[in-house]
Design a protein around this nucleic acid. Structure first.
Lengths: 360, 360
DNA sequence: CTGAAAGCGCTAACAC
DNA sequence: GTGTTAGCGCTTTCAG
């Protein structure tokens, strides 16, 4: 028990050594569990440590070992369950191998990300996992590479950064689900995403997010294959807050050329899109079909339940953390890692493009 | 640009000093932005640092200043949007004051929490925010206090731990919403939570979670006030995974003494309860009324939209982080901080106990 | 203002 | 096995 409540100086190996009547080195060895120590000494040291309530200073330890047993994670928005789940995969995996996690949220802003990476490097984390806000401007990530510190990418790729990347293969699933939509009679398929661009979307433009680019590629290929014109006018990026998403949705649903199906790029967007559809008095899937990325539990609860593209987000987190730790510990690049495949889960939100829709 | 890709030794103040032709001390002062340095020296040092791509070793810095500019956060489940949002409040606030956050997930297990706290202390974080898994067994938290390191509690209180605690006042809102339910004719009101107990619930038993205790107190007081018997048999704790929650829900809805209203203790539980209700063919609110804690966006999307008890979770995160940082920086205990009040948001899931229900 | 030198708490040679 | 002696990279006296 601590006899006084005052902020006493931390007890150090030196204190323990003195109490155990051994050299500092021996005490350190016993405490740090390395080198050669006789049973007798170890016992005395451990007893003294216990008695003094000794706690190692991990900072000092890290200083001379050059290892902090900490990994840095940089994501755009921890509030988004997508990252929440991935984070869970990361922390679970890290803990198993004795690593801690420093989390930095960037709000999807590149400046914040550049900063985050630098801070983490300065803190001497053993490695980094980042979900790059931009797949295009990546010099700060290349610098991480140059620093020699292990780096692994999560959720999206980054051009010019040649590191292990754990992201779902998007082109294929996007192609398939668009095809599914087209076969159900849809020709006017909209896509709503938060990626920011300088101007409105123009077919073929470079996007900040590799994931979104891939999805658009998939949509386009599906239209090309089917021989129908790619509805580039229905691709709506820069969808920010809930309000703007709802406004965009309303626009999409108006006029003679209205969308007959909407694809929401993530769970947060989906919430606002569905709300806007409901508010406008339209019904899913009779008036509009709906498809979204990420299979959150609540998607089963709406009427009708929503058709979604499920992504193995938790596994993605596990894979990224495992790979990073493997790199940190200098082990061989083992098996190629699990394929992170997305799957279309058909529930009730995609309907046949109705006569009513076909007519207008 | 780095001329060679090899893992060159980190450049240190000594290197910069040499390049700038000044003493190590002066270089350090210029770099660390403290002490007195002439403009001339500062310029040369900064230029040299730039040239050499010098980056400070924060570990070393922390070692002699005794400050790591890092706070530790310990929560039960970061995957739960409740904590995701709180986390967002914490990281946003921390960043503003120049602090980083180390996050540890405990899976609501006390052993993991004890461990987490120790690790964080060893890492010399400047302060801790913890959402205690148990409000009862709190010796590890008391030890944090004794260590002199600032500690702040989030989301739940801990008995015997006299520190600033940021949690929503639950008894009152629980009382009010129960009263609302009772006034709508409900007498058989169930409550489902994940808190684990040794046996089944018995009125008045000690619970691990102060939050749940408070809610039960509120429910009880509402029944007492109204002069109806407290339906202790409908309090179901230990609701673990989705499957068990659905099973519990089914039980609750069967038999002559079935519940006519169910309160879900959090968003995760709510998902399974609602799903079970839907699966059983019952309708909300005609057959069963439903109320849940936490106002997630999806609760507006179900049919009917769900009545919820909204908690200012983001603000709670902000408040906790602000208070902790204030303590770390030794500033006075300022204003008492914002009142964290929960509010009942009435939507469509609570109905009048129907004749059909009343009859059985 | 500047520089030499002494640590922070621990690990890592290196002798014995 | 054990102890002595150097550091890790930085801040901090303490003289000038």
């Amino acid at each position: 028990m601590s006899t006084d409540g005052s902020r006493r100086r931390d007890v150090t190996v030196a204190d323990v050594a003195k109490a155990a009547k051994v050299s500092k080195a021996q005490a350190a060895r016993a405490l740090g569990n390395y080198g050669a120590v006789s049973d007798d000494v170890r016992e005395r040291v451990l007893a003294a440590a216990e008695e003094l309530e000794y706690r190692p200073n991990e900072l000092a330890r890290s200083m001379n070992t050059g290892k902090s047993n900490t990994i840095g994670v940089v994501v755009g928005d921890i509030e988004n369950p997508h990252f929440g789940l991935a984070m869970r995969g990361i922390t679970d995996t890290a803990k198993k191998s004795g690593y801690n996690v420093i989390l930095i949220n960037t709000d999807e802003e590149r400046a914040a990300e550049v900063d985050a990476v630098r801070v983490l490097l300065d803190k001497r984390v053993d490695g980094l996992i980042v979900a790059p806000a931009s797949s295009v401007e990546t010099t700060h990530l290349q610098q991480v590479r140059e620093s020699g510190r292990p780096l692994v990418l999560l959720d999206r790729a980054a051009s010019g950064v040649d590191v292990e990347t754990f992201a779902v293969e998007m082109e294929k699933i996007s192609y398939e689900s668009t095809k599914h939509l087209i076969e159900a009679g849809h020709r006017r398929i909209a896509f709503v995403s938060t990626v920011s661009t300088d101007g409105p979307y123009v077919a073929g433009m470079t996007l900040d997010s590799s994931q979104i680019s891939d999805r658009l590629d998939g949509i386009r290929r599906a239209f090309d294959d089917a021989g129908f014109p790619y509805p580039a006018d229905l691709i709506r990026l820069n969808a920010g807050d809930s309000g703007s998403i709802m406004r965009i949705t309303q626009e999409l649903l108006q006029g003679p050329d209205a969308a007959t199906a909407i694809i929401a790029s993530d769970g947060l967007i989906a919430l606002s899109v569905v709300e806007a559809i409901q508010n406008s008095g339209l019904s899913i899937p009779d008036d509009v079909s709906f498809l979204m990325y990420d299979d959150f539990a609540w998607t089963r609860l709406t009427t009708p339940p929503l058709t979604v593209i499920a992504q193995p987000v938790y596994d993605m987190g596990i894979a990224a953390a495992s790979a990073l730790i493997r790199q940190i510990e200098g082990r061989k690049t083992a098996e190629p890692g699990p394929e992170l495949v997305a799957t279309l889960i058909q529930r009730g939100s995609i309907g046949v493009a109705s006569a009513k829709i076909a007519l207008r």
